[in-house]
Design a protein around this nucleic acid. Structure first.
Lengths: 353, 353
DNA sequence: CTGAAAGCGCTTACAG
DNA sequence: CTGAAAGCGCTTACAG
C-alpha cells in the first residue's frame, strides 16, 4: 500500500498522492476543516492510517507562526512548593492545548540565562518564569527584550521589570504570623533560611519584622540567616543558629520545606520542638500538617498561583498590548501545635497575671 | 541600520543582505564553521547583534532532521522520588545540549497516550517514559510503534515491551527489608499502598513476601492494600488497615512517600509508631531520615536512575540498532529507628530464650 | 573561502 | 468543495 521505503518519512505528500487530492486538502483534513467534504475526509483519513502517517507539528508551527508550546522555567522541583506550582501549570497548559518546554535553573542565574535563550530560540509562544534569586530587570531585558516574547513571572518578583505577575501577598503572610506569635506571647524570634536575593524572602521577613516591632518585639538582625530554599538549607541554618547562643522564643522559617529542616535539627539537639521553642513556616505544603509537632504556617496556595499564572500568560498572548496585570493571592494562617504548644508564653503570663 | 519594520521577524536573510554575504554563509557563521574566514564571521556577527537577530531553532531543526529536544513523561512530581528523578534527567539532558519537552500523566493511561502523541508529533529525538500503571506493551506499540522513536523506560517496566530500561532491583529491595524484619523478630506484616498496576509494587511485594515466607512469616493477602503512590494514599490505606482489626508487627509501605502517610495516620490514632508497630518504606527520599521516628527504608537511588536513563537514551539515539540494555541498580538497606525501636520482638525473644 | 539552488513538511491566500 | 503556487526560516550538497 504505502510506497514509503524503509527510512523515508511519510509526509502529507504521500497521503495526498495516495488519496488523489492536493496537499492543501490533506492539510485541511488534518485540521478537520468544514471546507472539505465528509467523503473526502474519510478517504484521506483512511489513507493516513494505512500508510502510517504521523503529523509533523514542528513544520506546521513553523509555517503557521506559532508553537503551541509554552516555556516553563522553575528553580528546583524537589521543593514541594515548586512541585505543586509546576503540576498546576502543566495541567492548565495541557488543558489549553499547549505543550511545555521545561527547564530548571537550580536558582542559578547563568543557568536561567541559558534556559531563557533556548526557549526564545525555540520560539515558544509564551514563557512562565520563577525568577532565580538575583534576577534583575536589566538581565531579563537583555535576554527577553529583543524577542518581545509574552511572559509572566510567578512566586518571585523582579523589581522594575514590566511584566504580568502572580504571587502570594508575602508581606501580609509575614504579618499574619507575627500577630499569631504575639498572641502566643513570643518576645524574641529568628528568621531562618531562604535565598538572600529572593523577593519572597525579603517580603516575608519584612512583614514579620515590622509587625512584631509594632508590639515591641524586635528580631535581632544577626538571627536572620539565609540559606537554600530547601530542607537541607534549613538544617544548615539551624545549626548556625544553635551555635550563636540561646534559642529565641520562636523560629520562623522562610518556608515549610525549610521548617522541616529546622524541626529535624532542633530535635537532634534534644530541643523539645513546639514546647521549648515555637516554630512556624510559610506555604502550607501537604507535609506541614504531618510534621511532628504539626507545623503552624501561612498557606500561600501554590496550585492557585500556578493556574493563575498559566491563565495570565494565555491572556497576554492573546492581547500583547494590554496593561500588566498583577494577581496577589491573599494568604491564610494555619495554626497548629508547633506554636500553640509553646509554654514560654504561658509561663510568662502566669508570672504576670 | 536594520530595515525590519515593527512586526517583521528578522531572519537570516536580513543578516545576509546587511552583511553582504549569502544566507549559506550566515548559516555557517551561526554554527561557527571553520569554512568561513574570521573576518567574515566578525562582520556577520556584528550585524546580527545590530539588527537584533534571534536564531530560529525550530526552522533549523526541521531542515536538519533533528530536534535537539527530548521528551520526558513522568506521573506526578509532587512525589519526591519522581522529583529527584526528573531533576537528574533534566540536568543530564541539559548538559548534553538537549531541551526537555515535559508532560505529567498523573498515572492516568489516557493522559499518557495524549502526551506520547504530542511528543511524537513534535518529533522529539528521544523519549523518557515512566509508564503509568496499567501501561501495556500493546498500548505502547500502538502509540510509539509507527514512529520508531528512540525511547527508554524507567522506574517501572512494561512486560513484553522491547526497550531500554533503568530501574532499581525491586525484588531485591523487598528481600532486604524482609531479612531485616525477620532479624527484628517480626512475625506478621502488612504491605500498604502503591498503585496496583505498577511493576514496582508487584516486585517489591513479591521480594518481601517470598523472603518472609522462607522464614515462616506469611503476609495475610487481605493486608495488601493498594493506594495512590502518595502520602495521601498512605493515609487512606492505613485507615483501612486500622479498621480491619489488630495491627500486624510491621507495616511495610510501598514507598517512603506512602510511609509518611502511614506514620501520620498511626500517630493520629494514638499508635506508638516504631515501638508498637515497626514501619518501613522504600526509596530513601531525603525526608525518610527526618521522619519521627526516623524511617527504615531501602535506598533506590532515583538520581542515579535519572542520570542513567538519560545516558541510555542518548546512546540509543546514536545507535538505534543496538541490543536493548537494562540497567538494574542494586538497592541498599538503611536501618533506622522506625524498626529498631520495635519492642514486640524483644518481648517475644525474652519469653523464648 | 563563498554562493545559487533545492528542500525540510507543513499552511496560507488566491482561484475556480 | 478542491488545487497550484508561494513561503515559513533555516541547512545541505554541489560548484567554483
Amino acid at each position: 500500500m504505502s510506497q514509503g521505503g524503509a527510512g523515508r518519512r511519510i509526509t502529507i505528500n504521500d497521503v495526498a498522492r495516495e488519496s488523489q487530492v492536493s496537499r492543501a486538502t490533506v492539510s485541511l483534513v488534518l485540521r478537520d476543516s468544514n471546507r472539505v467534504s465528509v467523503a473526502t475526509k474519510e478517504r484521506v483519513r483512511k489513507v493516513m492510517t494505512d500508510v502510517g502517517y504521523v503529523y509533523d507539528r514542528r513544520a506546521a508551527n513553523l509555517r503557521a507562526h506559532r508553537a503551541m508550546t509554552l516555556g516553563l522555567i522553575a528553580t528546583d522541583v524537589r521543593n514541594p512548593y515548586f512541585a505543586e506550582l509546576t503540576m498546576a501549570i502543566e495541567s492548565e497548559a495541557s488543558q489549553a492545548g499547549y505543550t511545555l518546554l521545561l527547564g530548571y535553573s537550580h536558582d542559578v542565574l547563568e543557568q536561567q540565562e541559558r534556559l531563557l535563550s533556548a526557549m526564545v530560540e525555540n520560539r515558544v509562544d509564551g514563557l512562565l518564569l520563577l525568577p532565580a534569586s538575583g534576577t534583575t530587570a536589566r538581565g531579563l531585558a537583555r535576554t527577553l527584550g529583543t524577542s518581545g516574547i509574552a511572559h509572566v513571572l510567578f512566586a518571585r518578583r523582579v523589581t522594575g521589570h514590566g511584566a504580568d505577575y502572580v504571587g502570594a501577598d508575602n508581606v501580609k503572610a509575614g504579618q499574619l504570623l507575627a500577630d499569631h506569635l504575639i498572641d502566643q506571647g513570643v518576645r524574641t524570634a529568628a528568621f531562618v533560611g531562604g535565598p538572600r536575593g529572593s523577593s519572597a524572602r525579603r517580603e516575608r521577613e519584612r512583614g514579620l519584622t515590622k509587625q512584631l516591632e509594632k508590639h515591641g518585639v524586635r528580631i535581632d538582625p544577626s538571627l536572620s540567616l539565609p540559606s537554600e530554599a530547601s530542607t537541607a538549607g534549613g538544617m544548615t541554618a539551624t545549626s548556625e543558629l544553635l551555635e550563636r547562643g540561646p534559642l529565641p522564643d520562636a523560629i520562623v522559617a522562610y518556608s515549610d520545606a525549610v521548617a522541616s529542616g529546622v524541626i529535624a535539627t532542633l530535635r537532634r539537639h534534644g530541643v523539645d520542638v513546639g514546647e521549648q521553642v515555637a516554630v512556624a513556616g510559610f506555604d502550607d505544603i501537604p507535609q506541614a500538617a504531618l510534621e511532628h509537632p504539626a507545623l503552624t504556617t501561612v498557606a500561600t496556595f501554590p496550585e492557585r498561583i500556578g493556574v493563575e499564572a498559566a491563565r495570565l500568560l494565555i491572556a497576554r498572548m492573546e492581547d500583547p498590548q494590554a496593561d500588566y496585570r498583577r494577581t496577589i493571592l491573599s494568604p491564610e494562617l494555619r495554626v497548629r501545635a508547633s506554636t500553640t504548644s509553646w509554654i514560654g508564653g504561658a509561663r510568662r503570663s502566669d508570672g504576670v497575671t
